[in-house]
Simulated scan of single mutants.
Amino acid sequence: MQSPLPALALLFNAFIWGLSWWPFRQMHGAGLHPLWATALMYGAILLVLLALRPGISAQLRQHRSLWLLALCSGLNNVAFNWAITIGDVVRVILLFYLMPAWSVLLAWRFLGERPTPQALARLLLAFSGVLLVLWPAEGGLPRLLAALTLADLLAILGGFTFAVTNVTLRRLHAVPGQARMVAMFGGCMLMALLAAQLGRSMGLVPPFPPLSATWAWVAALLAVVLLIGNWALQFGAARLAAGTTAIIMLSEVVFASGSSTLLGAAQLTGGTLAGGALILLAAGWSVWRPRVHAAGTPHAPSDKVTDTRPEAP
């Protein structure tokens, strides 16, 4: 009988990310904006990793294409962390999980993978769900555009850059895994710093606050927990099929929705529930694998959900 530990490890990782909105809000309430928090945590982790494995720096210089990975991974984390701090958590998570739909279009454009009719159907299903989530009670396209919040836009951007990161990782499959992961950590730190400075100039982000024991302890603990969670992701994903991993990852939506609803950080409307069901159905469908026939092997869908948030190498 297969050990349940890999599945439990993946559930633990999903649980960590599903509840990550709460410590980010605690730090925000203590005066530390999520952009500064992201830069601080990933910067500290990056320094430790480079000190332990200094040879990775040479690998980074050898593969300049890792800068693209750093860019899209950094934007992914910046957008996600900022959105879950200031927005309705359920709404943000659902918009973020539009990633499989973006992957269809990106793989078509950059990898030359023409979408199948099933992939196009998933695309239509996912975007229909997004419309239901975003559609205002009063209705009408003008009101829909007027009702979009910064958190909504950040969540959509996060899902899109999540998909770009997936496609980029596939193109960089020959690059050593440690170099890819360090590039992603570095990208999170750099993009958070750049976004914080830009947001500060626009009046959207306050200056870096004086040191506070409240947010300092939360940031340190969250950094450690994320490392443990991502180690659990590596352990589980290496021992289970990719489709199984992706399905278990969707439990993050359940953890985030349940915790945020109980703690008053989200509102479950009829439109959110209906749209979320369509988005999750599209995401689940994207990792379904047809039975392999003896005559040949079916093509793997290009929009598989893969967690590309930085992992501990």
Rank of each mutant, 00 (worst) to 15 (best):
G199E: 05
L250S: 00
T245Y: 12
A277K: 00
P298L: 11
E113Y: 00
L111I: 00
A126R: 07
F127S: 08
S57V: 14
S57D: 05
A155G: 00
F185D: 05
L157Y: 02
Q234L: 10
G271M: 03
A312E: 11
A174Q: 15
T165L: 01
Q178H: 14
T214R: 10
P209A: 09
S251R: 03
G129M: 06
Q178F: 11
L148D: 10
L66C: 08
R91P: 01
L120Q: 02
Y42T: 11
W215V: 06
L71K: 07
I248D: 04
S103N: 09
L172T: 07
R171D: 06
G229T: 09
M189L: 15
R171Y: 02
A238Y: 08
L211G: 04
G236K: 01
L105T: 07
L71Q: 05
G140H: 02
A107G: 03
Q2P: 13
L11C: 03
P142N: 08
L68S: 13
G284A: 00
L95S: 06
Q234V: 07
G31A: 06
A163L: 01
T165M: 03
L141S: 12
S259H: 08
S286V: 02
A213Q: 04
F110V: 00
G129W: 06
T272D: 05
L250K: 00
T161N: 04
P117N: 07
P313K: 09
F162I: 04
L10K: 01
V182Q: 02
G129L: 07
A265E: 15
N77I: 14
S201E: 10
V167Q: 13
G203N: 03
L132E: 08
L105S: 09
S65V: 05
R61L: 13
V175N: 02
T116N: 04
L273C: 03
L46V: 11
L222W: 05
A220D: 11
L145E: 13
A223P: 01
I228A: 15
G43H: 08
L49E: 14
G140N: 00
G271S: 00
L94H: 06
T116Y: 02
S20E: 10
L60D: 08
S73C: 14
H28F: 10
P207D: 04
L46C: 12
A266Y: 07
T149I: 07
V205H: 01
R25M: 14
R61H: 13
W67I: 14
L198G: 08
G18E: 03
S103Y: 03
E138S: 15
G18I: 05
G258C: 13
A295K: 13
L111Q: 11
R61K: 15
S3T: 12
A14R: 06
L131H: 00
G43L: 09
L211W: 11
N13M: 15
A147P: 09
F15T: 12
T85H: 09
C188T: 13
L148I: 11
W17T: 06
Q118K: 06
Q26G: 12
S302L: 10
L157P: 01
W215C: 07
L94K: 01
L148A: 10
Q118S: 11
L19W: 13
W231C: 12
A44G: 13
L49N: 10
F96Q: 09
W108A: 11
N77F: 13
P290K: 07
R53P: 12
V305S: 11
T214S: 13
T161L: 04
W231H: 15
I84S: 03
L273G: 00
A274W: 11
L268Y: 03
G243R: 05
